[in-house]
Lab assay of single mutants.
Amino acid sequence: EDYYQILGVPRNASQKEIKKAYYQLAKKYHPDTNKDDPKAKEKFSQLAEAYEVLSDEVKRKQYDA
């Protein structure tokens, strides 16, 4: 799945936009606030993985290549 789609940001998003999108979605899908939703944990880990790659310039360049 596309990391940009997961975070809901365009491919040319700035680091600030990526961070903002991640924090909004992380708050929304955090397992502690969605105890009754088994998919929230999965969504949250996808968000974390996408953010880890896109927030790191080197990893992001490799991902975009």
Rank of each mutant, 00 (worst) to 15 (best):
D64W: 02
K27A: 15
K28T: 09
Q15R: 11
N34I: 14
D64F: 01
L7K: 00
A50H: 00
K27T: 15
E42D: 10
H30N: 11
D36P: 07
H30A: 09
E57K: 08
Y23P: 03
G8N: 09
D37K: 05
E49K: 12
K59M: 07
P38A: 12
E57W: 13
Q24F: 13
R11H: 15
I6K: 05
Q62L: 09
A40F: 09
D2E: 04
A40V: 09
K16R: 12
Q15S: 11
L7R: 00
K39I: 14
K39W: 13
K16E: 15
F44D: 03
I18Q: 00
Q24P: 06
K19C: 09
I18C: 02
D32V: 07
Y23W: 12
K28V: 11
D37Y: 08
I6L: 12
A26K: 12
D37W: 07
D36N: 13
D2F: 05
D36T: 13
Y4D: 00
K59Y: 04
R11S: 05
Q46T: 12
K28M: 14
Y3S: 01
P38L: 10
K16V: 14
D2I: 03
N12C: 14
Y51T: 01
A13W: 01
V9I: 11
D37N: 10
V58Y: 11
Y3G: 01
Y3K: 03
D32N: 09
D32W: 01
E1M: 14
A50R: 00
P10A: 12
D64T: 02
P10R: 09
K35S: 11
A40R: 10
Q62T: 05
E17K: 07
E17D: 13
A13L: 01
E42L: 11
F44V: 05
V58C: 10
N34V: 10
L7I: 05
Y29V: 07
Q15Y: 12
A26N: 05
E42V: 11
Y3D: 00
K59T: 06
Y4K: 00
Q5N: 10
E49T: 10
P31F: 06
I18K: 00
A13T: 05
K27P: 09
I6P: 00
A21F: 04
A26W: 13
K20F: 13
Q24K: 12
L7E: 00
V53G: 02
E52S: 12
L47M: 08
E42R: 10
P31A: 10
H30D: 14
K43I: 14
K59L: 08
